[in-house]
Design a protein around this nucleic acid. Sequence first.
DNA 1: TCGATACGAAACGGTAGCGTATCGAAAGTG
DNA 2: CACTTTCGATACGCTACCGTTTCGTATCGA
Lengths: 190, 190
Amino acid sequence: MGRPRDARRDVAILEATLSLLTELGYEQLSIEAVAGRSGAAKTTIYRRYRDKADLVAAAVDYRSHATPPSPAAVGLRENLLALAGWLAREIAEQEIGLLGALFAGMRGDPRLAEEMRRILRRDEAAMTDEPFRKAIGDGERLTPRAAELFAEIAPAVIVHRVVVAGEPCDERFVEHLVDDILLPLLLEGR
Amino acid sequence: MGRPRDARRDVAILEATLSLLTELGYEQLSIEAVAGRSGAAKTTIYRRYRDKADLVAAAVDYRSHATPPSPAAVGLRENLLALAGWLAREIAEQEIGLLGALFAGMRGDPRLAEEMRRILRRDEAAMTDEPFRKAIGDGERLTPRAAELFAEIAPAVIVHRVVVAGEPCDERFVEHLVDDILLPLLLEGR
DNA sequence: TCGATACGAAACGGTAGCGTATCGAAAGTG
DNA sequence: CACTTTCGATACGCTACCGTTTCGTATCGA
């Protein structure tokens, strides 16, 4: 009954939200700007989402899920380098604006905060589960809680470098991260 | 010549800025709110600071410099526990709102970003220099770059836990941080 | 005492976004 | 075709804050 909603409107709205979120940050993101960039009227947006927090949560949930590279290399060090390098690129190029924008937004909006943490946990799990299962399956001798340690340390150090230090995560840094921090901690013997 | 500026106004303005910054975040911080809470007129604020970025930079610079506890315990592990615990408390109770608020603000304001990084580096140095000099002086066998590693990892992991995971940095976590991450990395032999 | 400056209070015009309402046209369903 | 809902466009009143100006008063130095 009645005219059905246009799915392309949803896509346009959510992608406009993501790009604006990256550019401007959560606080400065306005529904009006989303309407402008997406080509949708404000009415169309308010019909779907109650307010900004609702819209942003939907947009972050919608964004293409991060899919880390499956470990194709031979050794553990090479796999770690690939995984950490991918993570660094992901954070630096795509996520940092989004993450940084959301850090502040989460504080004023507990509902958004909980949603964000749910999504971050999901991505973190997807990032560590399969690669480490693979590495362990290949007979690498890792610490029992290697996956948890990786997920706890690698994103933290990368984000700290990008946001606080303001320095790039180039290849040298990734090697430093793997050789000086991750490998010593994750290898069984230590 | 003429009436000199009242230093108590400065204090009131900067402290109001800091508390509001922690509560609301950078974007939502308004000069009017600072005027309201500090009891100063907007005129008085604009006479001192050109705009919000200028005010915030001054406030962050003013805030009482973090002074870590001098290592009073006996062993390296105890000193690390004290230092990491103090850092966790500092971040969780005071800084996190401020840091989180500034992450977003830094993006839109390169001037503020550079000032913030300068201040963060200063505090980081103050935090690591003396305690590690003391520990090394006590004859502990540390990795050459122990201080750098500590400054690179500890704040990053703590911030990640508080902001991303949204879980508290209780005593159990600090012990985990020291025993499972810091000690294995900082000890010379590994 | 006098001149200069700081101070609080208030008002100003301007900008921006909020969330709502109304309208006619479009696009489905039965 | 009749009905229902969506969509774009536009206007609305509202709120908040901006950065500036004006005014009367307070407080210093010379």
